[in-house]
């Protein structure tokens, strides 16, 4: 969580840390919900439900934070 809050792109808590993903999303100005069929978290506001997350084998990456500027 701290890494994503600090602006680094990778979520360090894996693919099923639901509470942390919701906490990070609540603090994120870039959060935007993905389409319904791609949402997996019960919390509407969750990094796991964000349009700008990209799933990897072990976690998700924030594509917004990857962008320069």
């Amino acid at each position: 969580m701290e890494q994503m809050e600090a602006g680094l792109p990778e979520f360090p808590r894996g693919t099923e840390d639901w509470s942390t993903a919701a906490r990070v999303a609540a603090l994120c100005a870039e959060f935007r919900p993905d389409v319904e069929e791609e949402q997996v978290a019960d919390e509407a506001g969750s990094c796991y439900n964000c349009r700008y997350r990209r799933w990897s084998v072990d976690s998700i990456t924030c594509c917004k934070r990857q962008r320069p500027g």
Binding site: D34, E37, E38, R51, Y52, R53, R54, W55, S56, V57, C63
Partner: peptide, 22 residues
């Protein structure tokens, strides 16, 4: 109805964010 199917997530596969087919 439309179904969503999860495919492999792997560094060698190009995909936007989740690699699913409809």
């Amino acid at each position: 109805f439309v179904t969503r199917h999860q495919l492999l997530v792997h560094p060698d596969i190009p995909y936007t964010s989740h690699n699913s087919a409809m």
